[in-house]
Measured scan of single mutants.
Amino acid sequence: MQRVNMIMAESPGLITICLLGYLLSAECTVFLDHENANKILNRPKRYNSGKLEEFVQGNLERECMEEKCSFEEAREVFENTERTTEFWKQYVDGDQCESNPCLNGGSCKDDINSYECWCPFGFEGKNCELDVTCNIKNGRCEQFCKNSADNKVVCSCTEGYRLAENQKSCEPAVPFPCGRVSVSQTSKLTRAETVFPDVDYVNSTEAETILDNITQSTQSFNDFTRVVGGEDAKPGQFPWQVVLNGKVDAFCGGSIVNEKWIVTAAHCVETGVKITVVAGEHNIEETEHTEQKRNVIRIIPHHNYNAAINKYNHDIALLELDEPLVLNSYVTPICIADKEYTNIFLKFGSGYVSGWGRVFHKGRSALVLQYLRVPLVDRATCLRSTKFTIYNNMFCAGFHEGGRDSCQGDSGGPHVTEVEGTSFLTGIISWGEECAMKGKYGIYTKVSRYVNWIKEKTKLT
């Protein structure tokens, strides 16, 4: 034993070699072989497995989906700052455009905790909710729209109204504003409101030439003092309507412009014939205590009207009353817009006519005020429907199939267009061939041609 100890002390290297040989010859039971080890760690190889990531292109799944990435790591994937920024906006807080917040056709661009709407022409605001041009839906104005110097929408209202708090709607500024039905039992019968379409306001006024200088022999019209197929109006439903009495009662109609003036057809009036105007009328054979009678003290036909040349060209006249009318729910003026808007309103496509005229061709006159909704007829169809001249200051309205029309005794009465609950004068009943005849239409004086003249002559002093 002493000898062994001496050998170990003198030859430590020998001992180490012996131990190493023993270990190498022993069977290893701690580690699995290569094949079995792979069965336990069965993990798919990654895209760049075996390579240094710093030297390969980034992978979106590896960089940002398996674990949260930084902007720089995302930049490695896209290799483009702009594309990385677009991805980053949604990656950080989701897609803010998912709810489609942009209105009126706006395009949404996502941002971090926010979004941006790219608005089409005519709109602005956070969600493109603000109209900035009158060309689109009248700028959301209830009545009139004008573009300011910086191309912003400025709404306005006709006389007797003021802008509401929203700067879009119009509200009454006087007790009985024009064009409004205020009798409670008839307010439910107000005709369907007309909503502004998209309009090209630059070209809204037709490029028409008034044929002022045409000389033409007097034409022989049949029954051209021209509501057939209409309905009984309720008291106060058309408070701007008046009836004219002269040699015979209810020979023509008219509309209240203001307390002192009536507008009617020029062919209705004769110099030297006494005319009485009755406002607030409903049943011409009954006294309903809503009527107001006034005498006409002055007749002003349009300066281009000449019955000797043509009885229905420039067929418009103004009547001055001896005493002002007292405005109330049964006696209310009709609204008159400017030339541009009167023309736009007419193009809405349908209007209402009213009167006490004959209820059928050569038949009896109506006792109760009649009204009828009539569609506008395109000019080409209008011209083809008659052998008589249709001037540019006239328009056609009615039904091709016949059966409904204005008729004798309705002449001078109103053709009105309702705009968001307020009625505007767009025409004056003038003439036609018979009444409600198939293929024939009622012919009306186009008020847009005469609004400046009306307003100039009827100013209240």
Rank of each mutant, 00 (worst) to 15 (best):
K311Y: 05
K455D: 03
G230P: 10
G280C: 01
S217W: 09
G357K: 14
H303M: 08
I297L: 11
T332G: 04
S423W: 15
E129L: 02
L52K: 12
R404G: 15
C108A: 00
I300F: 06
N166Q: 03
S182G: 11
N80M: 05
Y450Q: 00
F345R: 00
V30N: 15
N36L: 07
I40Y: 13
I428N: 00
Y201T: 14
I15L: 07
C102W: 01
I334S: 01
E456C: 07
F345S: 01
G413C: 09
P301F: 11
P333Y: 01
W88R: 15
V296F: 01
C396E: 01
G50A: 13
T190V: 11
T426N: 01
G412K: 03
Y371D: 03
N306V: 07
V374M: 09
D131G: 10
T276C: 04
G421K: 09
K446Q: 05
S220V: 12
V183T: 09
L318V: 07
T342V: 03
R46Y: 11
E171I: 12
T290M: 08
R162S: 10
E323T: 13
G409H: 12
V326T: 09
N203P: 09
I299D: 03
C134A: 03
E401M: 10
P324Q: 04
L369T: 15
Y341C: 03
Y161S: 01
C18I: 14
F238A: 05
C157P: 01
V154T: 10
F348V: 13
F399G: 09
D315H: 01
T133M: 13
C141S: 00
G402V: 15
G13A: 12
Q57Y: 09
D33E: 07
K311L: 08
K440S: 10
G125L: 00
Y305R: 11
I429W: 09
C28L: 02
N100T: 10
W261M: 02
C268K: 00
L52D: 11
F388E: 11
V447R: 00
G122K: 03
R62H: 12
V154G: 06
G230L: 12
C128A: 00
Y115S: 02
I256N: 00
V278Q: 04
E73D: 10
G280Q: 02
V374E: 01
R191Y: 07
R364W: 05
E193L: 12
E53H: 08
S411D: 15
T29C: 10
N59A: 11
E72N: 15
S11W: 07
N258M: 02
D322F: 02
Y444Q: 00
T190N: 06
N166S: 04
A149L: 09
K68R: 13
E286M: 11
D410R: 13
L319V: 06
